[in-house]
Design a protein around this nucleic acid. Structure first.
Lengths: 236, 236
DNA sequence: CCTCGAAACTTCGTATACAGAACGTCTCGT
DNA sequence: ACGAGACGTTCTGTATACGAAGTTTCGAGG
């Protein structure tokens, strides 16, 4: 929603969108020191703007600002890897494979449990949305309609995560969306989705609708297992 | 001007530590409009400092800053609930029960998978640490040594998450620590830990050491199931 | 009377200048 | 050689001015 509408979003945001990816991509390896004056000159903005950008970077634990020494890039292990912006930057950068793998593993842990909870908590409206998107996936699963398929796939998983009733799960929707989008971008228009996966989605929708938590969880586990298997092809 | 050594940290951090909890606790309900001038006066700092704090709040998606209208508090569903600081604030505030429940559910999804991965990836050093902490838990499980027990318990789970080899899992260590600490604080020195749970930890350490992923996962699932069961007692 | 549009006002956004504090480094004295 | 203190660099905070943008209001025209 808010992300990357780079028209004129504020100077500090532009600095952030340039500095952040540079750091996460490793252009400034951990330990590198950046000085605010230098940055101000490099981006041709005032120090005030730089300081605001640095504050945000600091809140992501990407950098630490200390007097006399400068703004130092923190080691990778300390980064706030759950920050959607950090995820986006890493996904766009050079360790995209690693990030994709991490996120897929996270998916494989969270989504089955979320599906199980959804089977117990989903509202009728959510169940309806689920079956609708599952049908949509079926309808678009053949004949080079990957974009339309992706929309339904993303929406399906978002509804499941939301229906789980757990806010932490719900907030992973955009992460899952990023993973699914990434996969589609690599399939680039050549192979239709796996029919077995489509069937699984339909069955998950049904299991959630009928309140069969164990079945919803097991089926979703099969879906994520498939995603894990695909990973070896996608990520080197 | 007051020139007293008011705080060790920066001014903006102090504003943040006051504004953040206020927002997450609901003192400023979603939709509330805050003006930078007003905040500057309220905290007796310059607008620059306020704006830096607001930037960080904005990066957490707690607020949105718009011209002419002010800084508006965003709806709860949009908050970055994975930001450690947001978690901490909510854990300290009035919807602590909800947060505790969310985190425990997240634990129950992630930790079993992490344990399974740890069984395949753990280094000998990590295995040693695991058995050490498991033994420590055994040693401190009786006789009102809850503090020492908590240290070993926390360390145990941190090692498991780290040994999974997944950076996203590893970063959940502090979250798990927060949950475990919260639990201990409520048990307040009256009941010793459940012996069955202690045994499970020892068995998990063994399963990971012997590379039995399925067993490590199943056992950890029992541990988290226990935590979920406890939850009904702890969180209203 | 209603609608459309422009001006004005309010608030955030950016730039600049300066004072203060902290931390590394360099030098000097023992 | 080694430690303590002075120094300089760089971040931190403050104050102020101007610009931009949106909301609101007021007025003109239909």
């Amino acid at each position: 929603m808010d992300a990357t509408a780079n028209g004129e979003k504020g100077l500090h945001a532009r600095v952030l969108e340039s500095l952040g990816p540079a750091i996460t991509a490793g252009d400034h390896p951990p330990g590198t020191v950046l000085r605010t004056d230098e940055l101000a000159e490099r981006f041709d903005v005032s120090r005030t703007v730089i300081r605001e950008a640095v504050r945000v970077l600091e809140s992501m634990h990407l950098v630490a600002s200390r007097r006399r020494v400068g703004v130092t890039v923190r080691p990778t292990e300390e980064w706030n890897v759950y920050d959607p912006r950090v995820i986006g930057w890493r996904l766009a950068g050079r360790d995209r494979p690693r990030q994709l793998r991490s996120l897929t593993v996270l998916r494989s842990a969270v989504e089955p449990v979320a599906a199980g909870l959804a089977a117990r908590h989903a509202t009728p409206a959510q169940c309806a949305a689920l079956t609708e998107h599952a049908m949509g996936m079926v309808a678009t699963s053949r004949g080079q309609q990957l974009d339309a398929y992706l929309v339904h796939d993303t929406a399906f998983h978002a509804v499941v995560l939301s229906a789980s009733g757990n806010e932490m799960f719900a907030r992973l929707a955009e992460v899952v969306a990023a993973v699914l989008t990434g996969r589609t971008q690599h399939h680039v228009m050549f192979t239709d989705p796996d029919p077995a996966a489509v069937t699984l989605h339909v069955q998950v929708a049904e299991a959630i609708r009928t309140g069969d938590a164990a079945r919803a969880e097991a089926l979703t586990r099969q879906i994520t297992a498939g995603a894990m298997a695909e990973l070896d092809v996608l990520a080197p």
